[in-house]
């Protein structure tokens, strides 16, 4: 949390269910569920625009301010997506302390071009756009920046990433984050492996039919 925690105005939801959630969304609110720390789960709603703005800028921790003046620090645990799979329609929030250790996904951002990618036919593929990290809630970074200009070889693994202080990677250390691939060889291999036009696939049940015909 290099910047200040975004503060959102939250309202308790009295009426629950699809119909009322849809009305809330139409009114620019985002339905959420708040749970954790032994307290009973609460159905709330927050302002959609401000929430999405915060999430798009890498916020994981939000400060909720209720009508009655009470506040809560929460961690975004899950997002539910709606029609076409990219609009957020619901959010799960967990109450947290700033000194609690949690595992979250953090966006990776890259600067520069690897040396290997300057060769002809090379492309850089991002195998892991987000990385799972374990850290205290107060230490959750908005993003992890990596300079690719010093990258050695054709692959950057999780173990080679420079993590901010207090943050450790929870993903497999040998997993590839960035790979430099050469398209010319790959395209040639793909064309050779593709079946010829007009070829028919093998039918697994074809033999049984022949056996049944012979019995008749």
């Amino acid at each position: 949390m290099s910047k200040e925690t975004p503060v959102l105005v939250a309202k308790k939801r009295e009426k629950l269910g699809t119909r009322y959630s849809r009305r809330l969304r139409a009114a620019g609110q985002l339905p959420c569920n708040l749970y954790g720390h032994g307290s009973a789960p609460v159905a709330i709603s927050v302002e959609e625009h401000a929430t999405l703005y915060a999430l798009k800028h890498g916020a994981h921790v939000l400060a909720l301010k209720f009508d009655d003046g009470s506040t809560d620090t929460v961690l975004v645990k899950d997002l539910q997506f709606g029609f076409l799979g990219d609009n957020v329609i619901h959010m799960d929030l967990a109450r947290v302390n700033l000194d609690e250790v949690v595992t979250v996904k953090v966006h990776l951002s890259f600067i520069g071009t690897p040396e290997a990618a300057k060769k002809p036919g090379a492309i850089v593929t991002h195998d892991m756009p987000e990385i799972e990290v374990t850290c205290k809630v107060r230490d959750i970074p908005e993003e992890i920046k990596t300079d690719l200009s010093h990258m050695e070889g054709e692959m950057l693994t999780v173990g080679q990433l420079k993590m901010p202080a207090g943050v450790t990677a929870a993903s497999d250390a040998n997993a590839a984050v960035i790979r430099v691939q050469f398209m010319k060889e790959e395209a040639a291999a793909g064309e050779a492996a593709a079946p010829a036009a007009g070829a028919a696939p093998e039918v697994l049940t074809a033999k049984k039919e022949e056996g049944a015909d012979a019995k008749k």
Binding site: L84, D86, P195, A196, A197, G198, P201, V203, L204
Partner: peptide, 29 residues
Amino acid sequence: MSNLIPKRVKYRKQQRGKMKGNATRGNYV
């Protein structure tokens, strides 16, 4: 032009079927 077809199938032909609703899998990048 090479064509995309399966390597092996269980049955040679299928009924047409229906496609109702939206995609719930394979609907994000």
